[in-house]
Design a protein around this nucleic acid. Structure first.
Lengths: 218, 218
DNA sequence: ACATGTGAACTGCTTCACAGCG
DNA sequence: CGCTGTGAAGCAGTTCACATGT
């Protein structure tokens, strides 16, 4: 392959599972870099990530040929490449709606900022919360989101409100031009096809464990 | 199919994606039941869950024939069946290790208990936290987990400690006979093959959004 | 000799289409 | 006739195996 690393040359569809694994590899590479390792083989990355070396190579080959045959991959180089592929070479402006447990936890978590996710604004519907300050971010009234979005730019919207309010928040975000939504409400939200959404539903995860336990005996 | 609904007759492997969808269907059924709907078709469930009617029928057919041709499924009956399949007809004893943000949030969340996940114990390493009470659960010293597990039975272990401590907590849980582990630490944990684990890694989810945004233009 | 990059084979989930039954 | 249940077909992701380059 001709090592077309620019996003402009993405021909193949990228499986979701590949993206998840790339994130994992990046984590391992950052550790390896700190330990001063110069190169790493697909086999080592596979062992760390609980997959196979062929899988690692296939994952990377979607984006280009980053390795040296007989040697492996240069750790610092591959780190930079993966960061670039994952869009982590820059800061994203994040708006969080819902200053409850999840919303506040995210706004206060330092690792979130360090990864390039900058919480630019925090909204809530409760008059008691509006106006208070969290981590030097003032909580604003949710009603202002639509108008604020005209002057401020938000890349990622986080829905951290109860199930009932989730769809309406999503609609506001879409109208505000936000193209990526992380949904922590335990409901499916409907959005136009050009908007990317991910729903994190902890209840579902626990029910999957419950299913596994109930069927262990088989 | 001969409607073998007992877990003893599971012949087919159940895809992970199917389990996730069954949880979703169950949620919709509970809503439909409250609204007094008597029956529901695979088509309606599909629409609610963002999938196809064939997919719904295939998902259910793994476990038996619950529907009536020309009519659909009886809402109360299918609700019970799904709850049973997912192992939600009973209470699970959950032990949470790590009384930080996530651990405390779970211990205090009422919906968790309502779904049958009963937090039986909460452990932490910090002397400042040990002995204090949260939601009528006294926080115990992590060192006592191994011995406590001899007299108390825990079904599900939740790892809610920082990355560094996760593997050691997992080892303790496995030694204590816990068969299912929910891991909130942002690391891969290694466990014997007969132990079920799920890792919830919010960082990975956000990086997937970042990837999608970075490659929107293509 | 060693480890990558990749077409080919394989596996498994999803979609199709229709027979079967209420 | 309507909707389920299910083999068969289709498709996507993974694994295999080896040619290729250092």
């Amino acid at each position: 392959m001709k090592n077309f690393t620019s996003p402009l040359f993405h021909l193949k569809r990228v499986p979701d599972s590949t993206v998840r694994r790339l994130s994992l590899y990046l984590g391992f590479l950052e550790e390896l870099e700190q330990r001063g390792e110069a190169t790493v083989s697909s086999d080592v990355l596979a062992r760390l990530g609980g997959t196979t070396s062929a899988q690692v190579r296939k994952d990377l080959s979607i984006f280009g040929s980053f390795g040296k045959r007989g040697l492996g991959y240069f750790v610092p180089e591959l780190t930079v490449r993966l960061r670039d592929i994952l869009g982590l070479g820059r800061d994203w402006h994040v708006v969080i709606v819902g200053a409850g447990k999840i919303g506040l936890a995210l706004a206060q978590y330092p690792g979130f900022r360090e990864k390039g996710f900058q919480v630019s604004a925090l909204y809530d519907a409760s008059p008691a919360k509006v106006g208070t300050t969290v981590n030097s971010i003032q909580i604003r009234n949710i009603k202002r989101l639509a108008s604020d979005a005209c002057t401020e730019h938000f890349d990622i919207g986080v829905i951290a409100v109860p199930a009932e309010g989730a769809q309406s928040v999503a609609d506001t975000m879409v109208a505000a031009g936000i193209k990526a939504i992380m949904n922590f409400a335990p409901v499916q939200i409907a959005v136009p096809t050009d908007i990317v959404t991910r729903t994190v539903n902890m209840g579902l995860e626990f029910e999957a464990l419950s299913f596994a336990l109930a069927n262990l005996s088989k």
